[in-house]
């Protein structure tokens, strides 16, 4: 991920924001900007996990279903009177177990990530229905709801959490050997193996982290909405993938970063917010997001090829997400 790629995206975000602001000044209200951050926060936490998985050359279609399963089980636990901390731990554990199973199936049984996580999506969704009996679990304690609805110095808790996670995972990806391994595995798993990286372990941890983050997002979702439901999140995987792609992470792995994904999430959220404000029929939302994906990726290719030799890029694109 080169600096000008991020700058390109940042410029697009600013241009979009200014355009929407010119059409509708309400967009610029501080309360609305905080709204955008708060709404983006949930998607961003999922996008962090998705970015890590995609960086290793995988994909995670199961995050929405894992979110539903973990939040339903946590909600049932709390409904039965277990302490909040226990509920939170159970939820995160379930997320990690689902991620771990994904990782093991991908690395040990060698089932392509696409199919593994697609199957996990069905499986987790089914379990979520089974545990919750299809009902919506609602009404949580104030102290639990704080993580979704609370503010510190006017900044919503979900935003604080996502910034915190961005910080932690940025450090992990940039400054630890594990982070380096993730990029290495994504760009060339065979040579990573040859230089002694435990490729399987790195991959399993990536899926585990994605599961963990899905569960974490599930907790915030539950707290924010005061309800846990087994149906939530059917569209989350594609939303997260779209945001990550708009953020410039290469779908074949090894290239991209969390700031890019943050901008990607913001672009998607700003578009939806802007269209809501301007009263444009929501039927067009997907259309705009799809166009943005195509436009930005095309532009990126041209700005890249203007400076850098193309064949290098080509050799990189031969890889795919089954390795």
């Amino acid at each position: 991920m080169r600096r000008n790629d991020i700058l390109l995206r940042f410029a697009l975000l600013i241009i979009l924001a200014i355009l929407i602001f010119l059409v509708n000044p309400n967009f610029g209200k501080p309360a609305n900007l905080i709204n955008i951050l708060r709404q983006g926060a949930l998607l961003y936490i999922l996008a962090i996990g998705m970015t890590i998985v995609i960086l290793t050359g995988g994909i995670d279609l199961s995050n929405g279903a894992v979110l539903a399963l973990s939040s339903c089980v946590a909600a049932i636990a709390m409904e039965r009177g277990l302490p909040i901390m226990v509920g939170i731990i159970i939820s995160l554990a379930i997320g990690m177990i689902c991620g771990f199973v994904n990782g093991v199936l991908v690395t040990q049984v060698k089932i392509p990530p696409f199919i593994t996580t697609f199957a996990m999506m069905y499986f987790a969704r089914g379990l979520a229905y089974i545990f919750s009996h299809g009902r919506i679990i609602y009404g949580f304690e104030k102290s639990f709801r704080f993580i979704g609805t609370g503010n510190i110095f006017g900044i919503p808790m979900p935003v604080i959490f996502s910034l915190l996670l961005l910080f932690i995972f940025y450090i992990v990806l940039e400054y630890t050997s594990f982070g380096v391994n993730i990029y290495a595995v994504g760009s060339n798993s065979e040579s990573s193996r040859l230089v002694g990286i435990n490729v399987k372990k790195v991959r399993i941890i990536a899926y585990l982290l994605s599961g963990f983050l899905s569960a974490f997002a599930g907790l915030i979702y539950t707290a924010r909405l005061n309800a846990a439901e087994p149906v939530v999140g059917a569209s989350f995987p594609l939303d997260a993938i779209a945001a990550v792609i708009i953020g410039g992470t290469s779908i074949v792995g090894g290239e991209g970063n969390l700031f890019g994904s943050a901008i990607g999430v913001l672009i998607c959220t700003v578009i939806i917010n802007g269209m809501n404000l301007m009263g444009i029929s929501s039927l067009w939302q997907q259309f705009v997001i799809g166009s943005i994906i195509l436009i930005i990726i095309t532009t990126q290719t041209y700005t890249k090829s203007a400076k850098i030799n193309i064949p290098i890029l080509r050799s990189r694109k031969i890889e795919s997400f089954e390795k």
């Binding site: 709204n35 709404q39 939530v232």
Partner: peptide, 15 residues
């Protein structure tokens, strides 16, 4: 959906 209802409403409240 509940989450969509919340998000869309938050946006409209600004407008």
């Amino acid at each position: 959906s509940r989450i969509e209802g919340q998000n869309v409403m938050e946006n409209l409240l600004q407008q």
